[in-house]
């Protein structure tokens, strides 16, 4: 089951970073459960039309960070994590998004109470079709 990664090669974020962030997000959302196998470097680099070095760098760093592990010889799998680690994995992407939103709020001189009200309203909004 290849993860659905989408790499934007022109946004200036190194491709290996984008691979790492997207795999982490898929683990956080449960799309990639613990034990799930990742495609080989060769397969993923062919699929994304990326340099294999880029994929192996992303995999290597995810392995170093304890997010992936090598099992049964060469296959990379998603490592099982504790509940608290899983919680951090889930909140971290949101925290990063909100940091950017907070910067924008300060730039626009929106007081914190007003900014919070907007975020709360957004949380309760029904996703539009």
């Amino acid at each position: 089951m290849p993860p659905l990664l989408s790499i934007d090669l022109h946004n200036g974020v190194p491709a290996y970073r984008q691979i790492m962030d997207q795999i982490k997000l898929q683990i956080a959302t449960g799309l990639l459960p613990a034990g799930a196998e990742l495609p080989s470097t060769r397969t993923l680099s062919a699929e994304l039309a990326l340099n294999p070095m880029t994929v192996s760098k992303a995999y290597g760093l995810l392995e170093r960070d304890g997010i992936l592990e090598r099992r049964r010889g060469q296959t990379l799998t998603v490592r099982a994590v504790s509940d608290s680690e899983a919680q951090t994995g889930r909140t971290e992407p949101l925290r990063q998004h909100l940091a950017a939103a907070a910067a924008l709020a300060r730039q626009l001189d929106i007081p914190p109470a007003e900014a919070l009200r907007i975020f709360k309203a957004a949380l309760h909004e029904k996703p539009s079709a």
Binding site: H10, N11, G12, V13, P14, A100, A103, R106, Q107
Partner: peptide, 12 residues
């Protein structure tokens, strides 16, 4: 000041 950072692509 507040600093927002954005990476550059190769063209830039």
């Amino acid at each position: 000041a507040q600093v927002q950072s954005r990476p550059l692509n190769l063209d830039e």
